[in-house]
Design a protein around this nucleic acid. Structure first.
Lengths: 205, 205
DNA sequence: AATTTCGGAGAACAGTTGTTAACTGCATGG
DNA sequence: CCATGCAGTTAACAACTGTTCTCCGAAATT
């Protein structure tokens, strides 16, 4: 039962993944707009022309990387926003989650932070799209909270955007941090989130 | 009294400025890490080798651009933070100031937003240094406000950092906005700042 | 007036880039 | 079992890159 997807298609996927991983590696020390097609294929161990079997251009590859970096993160969002516990516990857990994610996928995080305002328009658009989705998801999560009673949809979206921006800024800070500084960054991020949640509590009236 | 700086040095400065402006133009559609030396000299109308008389590399030129983009902004900061008026008026004035700055110097703003997390380490470091300076200046401005009574220096620095990040995010949003959307972005930014200032008011206790 | 300094030009270098064309070999579907 | 499809290779192209060395002319110094 069930074909294991075909020997042929499987091998294609392996090459595609090799290209994506090689690119991600190279992007540790440069921006996407300077990433060369040959450079990528060389690092992936395939011929330059093989690239065209998978992507039209490096910009196209970048869009695929956005999907890989952010696409699988959506389930996590709603689950985290509507977690149990008091405000302090929820803040600590959210920051812990960010820290772990940055530790486990530093290249993906770096890529997103770098290309969010980078020099390749389609990639910027793809990232903006994913972040807008995150924002709507956080909004939905917040709406379920009893503390959001009386809030307009517009204001909830504003708060969600503030949170998403803050999450990304914290992740970027973790990335740039030298070993041992993570504690300080976590404390600063917690204070920021605490201030925002205080503002949230007194928003009405 | 006073030599007008010498014909020779003056011409050198003109060429240097031509290189910086040509680079800034080219950086509208790419990142610094893909900016070529020859590309810059071609756009500036000088020979490739002339580049070396002014910069060691394009990374070096990038650091100079950071200075040009952010160096002259410091006086403005303290003046804006410690302005008169109630909270709403001060928020509106700050956002207006950002909007005007983005309108008048879009290339500089784009450059900073893009290279803040870009692929060229010395430039990232230069931007981080300038933003840290901004944060300290905002902190000093906030400290003068009677509303900051009882605040620890650490907390003031946290709040200042939050403001600086928010300013940059707003500027970046203005940049990406299509004509006519500026009003909405200004309104969203105002709401964010209002929420933060509410959090500030209730921070203690 | 003679000499030094120095910003910029010119030519040449080895190496790299994206893209094209024609090919090879093997998994696939009839 | 055979013919088709297609991922990947090889070779070649014109164009471009950063860097070096040599030179020129005019401003600056003496």
């Amino acid at each position: 039962m069930s074909h294991t997807a075909g020997v042929r298609a499987a091998q294609k996927q392996r090459t595609r993944q090799a290209l994506l991983e090689a690119a991600l590696d190279l992007l540790a020390e440069q921006s996407l707009s300077s990433l060369g097609l040959r450079e990528v294929t060389r690092a992936a161990g395939v011929a330059p022309t093989a690239f065209y079997r998978h992507f039209h251009s490096t910009a196209d590859l970048g869009v695929a990387l956005v999907e890989e970096a952010l696409g699988s993160l959506h389930p996590l969002i709603g689950h985290t926003v509507s977690a149990a516990g008091d405000t302090g516990e929820r803040i600590a857990r959210a920051i812990d989650l960010i820290a772990r994610h940055v530790r486990e996928h530093p290249a993906h995080v770096r890529f997103v932070a770098r290309e969010r305002n980078g020099g390749v328009q389609p990639v910027r658009a793809a990232i903006a799209g994913q972040l807008a989705r995150f924002t709507r998801e956080v909004r939905t999560g917040l709406a379920a909270d009893p503390e959001s009673a009386g809030w307009s949809d517009e204001d909830l979206l504003m708060l969600a955007g503030l949170y998403v921006d803050q999450m990304l800024a914290t992740a970027a800070a973790f990335l740039e941090a030298e070993p041992g500084q993570e504690r300080d960054i976590a404390r600063e991020a917690a204070r920021r989130l605490r201030l925002i949640s205080i503002g949230r509590r007194h928003w009405l009236g």
